[in-house]
Simulated scan of single mutants.
Amino acid sequence: MSPEYVADGIFSMKFDVFSFGVILLEMLSRKKNRGFHHPNHDHNLLGHAWILWIQDKPLELIDKTFCDSCNMSEVVRCLHVGLLCVQRVPEDRPSMSSVVLMLSSDVALPPPKQPGFYTERSVHESPSRTLPCSENTFSTTMIEAR
């Protein structure tokens, strides 16, 4: 889901673009955004893709099975478009018609900005933290037949 919907319940016209970008990144990496794990950090797939992009290592995100059968410049272009689709601010995301044009031509692509949901989560927190809850004071009466 797009950041504006999760944070504020606002449904924008670019909601589908964000979702498409997530799916595109998942297809390229062959990993799911939800539950993604990397040994060097606790970012999700979007954060990992962004880190590799700014470090100029986009090919490290791409699943190796693409290397044999695809034009790698086209695959990196798909990654670039995916990052443009997952921008935090809806106005920074392209329209779906622009996405189709970007994927089907050699039109120049703008540099992506940091994606939405690019926050490092703490998955190593102690499980001893519990949420407050009510005590179960329900009693059961033994029912016996006559």
Rank of each mutant, 00 (worst) to 15 (best):
H38A: 00
A145W: 15
D68F: 08
P110H: 08
P132D: 07
S69Q: 08
N40L: 04
P111A: 14
S98H: 09
P90N: 09
P132N: 10
M96Q: 02
F11E: 06
I23T: 11
K14I: 08
F117T: 08
S98L: 15
D106F: 11
L46V: 00
S122I: 03
F18G: 00
M27S: 06
D8L: 12
D106V: 01
V89H: 14
F36D: 00
H48V: 02
E4V: 04
H43D: 07
S97W: 10
A49V: 03
D68S: 14
E135Q: 13
K32D: 07
P115C: 05
R30N: 05
T65L: 06
P132R: 13
V6Q: 14
H43T: 00
T65Y: 07
W50I: 05
Q87W: 02
R121I: 05
P58N: 05
E120C: 01
H124I: 00
L84W: 13
E91N: 08
N33K: 04
W53E: 04
P127D: 15
A7Y: 09
P115S: 01
S73A: 07
L52V: 01
P94M: 00
I54Y: 09
Q87V: 06
S128W: 11
W53I: 04
T119C: 04
M142N: 14
A7T: 11
Q55I: 00
F66G: 05
V81I: 07
I51Q: 11
T137M: 03
A145E: 13
S139F: 14
R121Q: 14
N71Q: 11
H38T: 00
P111T: 08
K113Q: 14
S95V: 01
E135P: 02
R34T: 13
D42V: 00
E144L: 11
L24S: 04
V6C: 09
P90E: 15
I23C: 10
P127M: 12
S104I: 00
M72T: 06
H48M: 06
I143F: 13
L52C: 01
F36S: 03
P111N: 14
H41W: 12
A145P: 04
D16M: 01
F20S: 10
S126W: 11
L25Y: 04
L25Q: 03
F138H: 09
D68L: 10
E125G: 04
E125K: 06
E74Y: 05
D92G: 04
L28G: 09
T65I: 03
I23K: 00
C133F: 15
A7V: 05
S134Q: 12
L52R: 03
F36M: 13
V22W: 05
I143A: 14
S98M: 11
R30I: 00
D56W: 13
Q87K: 08
C78V: 04
E91L: 13
K57I: 01
R30F: 07
V17W: 09
V22K: 01
L101E: 15
H43L: 15
N44H: 05
I62L: 02
Y5M: 12
P132V: 11
I10M: 15
K31N: 12
K32W: 01
S128H: 10
N136A: 10
L45M: 06
F138G: 03
C133L: 06
D63F: 08
I51H: 09
M102P: 03
T119Y: 10
L59V: 13
H41R: 11
V76E: 15
G35V: 08
H124F: 09
K64M: 05
C78D: 08
K113D: 15
S126I: 08
T140W: 12
D106T: 00
D68E: 15
V76G: 04
